[in-house]
Nucleic acid binder design. Structure first.
Lengths: 162, 162
DNA sequence: TGTAATAGTTGTATCTTTGTAACCATTATG
DNA sequence: CATAATGGTTACAAAGATACAACTATTACA
């Protein structure tokens, strides 16, 4: 019934929607058990491991995470010495978050632990399939960054004082 | 410092970890605003739109969602007539969940709304990039299903009565 | 038949995330 | 200079998800 002719974009949406649960299955689970960090903190460590230093708002934008939430998570990460607050010289409102050496190695360790666990699962793939997966994930990552890596704002930036 | 030579699997993990926030940015947000369904229910509709009928445990396994949580979400979906409970004939313990016609069309509509929103974002890509994205997401989807689409159990299957 | 295992439900406590609102400090703008 | 806008923080409420524990019903097994 109902002929379903999908557009290109609908196919992408379809695929991406199916990816979400698969991803959470593949390691959100691992995260919860293997680390003392909650998912949100892990994501922050993820972007910081790439960008090294980001302002609070940058983090919120990149992860579309409400600013109050970012504050709370950063507080915890600072307690564990994974990151540090650094005042911005040019704009004193801005608080820059910098990943520490400890944070870098700790995050590296976490990723390796997860990789270890995933190795078992991924070994079901042939050498060619694994190569394809590397390329494909890389492409998806890059193309989604182009499409969605933009500012686009994060919550609690409301100040529509009437 | 610390020479980082990534293995193939570590690269995959790296990419997948970066994907998670991008995905939630790209439509977890949309979901929250565009539908009256919460993310969990959407995921259930996602697997049901593919498999049409699944037992409660199947759903829990596919989404690695605790069984009690599945029960709650299914209750809501039934209220909205998106799915229906069907007793299993061969094993009377099993409750099969079947997506309704309404559920199919509703879910289709939701996907189209999300697609509409995403179109704007994805139009920043060239025709070639978009083609690449379709192929890449398809590949990632298929390969992750091979790797992680297995049973693997879901919580609350504990019955180690001592 | 008795016991263990499986499928599912109910209930509760806790954690995580989101959404607001109010607030301070600083910068930008008229 | 007055005011608006931005960057961050604090606090609180509500939604969503996870983890347990206990329980029923049914099936598998010895």
């Amino acid at each position: 019934m109902t002929e379903i002719k999908q557009t290109t974009i609908e196919t992408v949406v379809d695929n991406l929607m199916y990816l979400q649960p698969l991803l959470s299955k593949s390691f959100s689970k691992q995260m919860r058990t293997k680390t003392n960090l909650n998912p949100g903190s892990l994501f922050i460590m993820g972007v910081l491991s790439v960008h090294k230093t980001l302002s609070m708002s940058d983090i919120g934008r990149k992860l579309s995470m409400p600013k109050p939430h970012v504050t709370v998570l950063i507080d915890k990460l600072i307690e564990e010495e994974m990151v540090e607050r650094i005042a911005d010289l040019s704009d004193r409102r801005i608080v820059n978050i910098h990943i520490t050496e400890k944070g870098i190695t700790q995050f590296q360790n976490i990723k390796q632990e997860i990789s270890e666990e995933m190795r078992q699962q991924l070994q079901q793939l042939t050498k060619e399939q694994l190569t394809t997966l590397v390329t494909a994930t890389q492409q998806v990552r890059e193309l989604l960054i182009i499409s969605f890596g933009k500012p686009s704002g994060c919550p609690n930036t409301k100040n529509q004082a009437s």
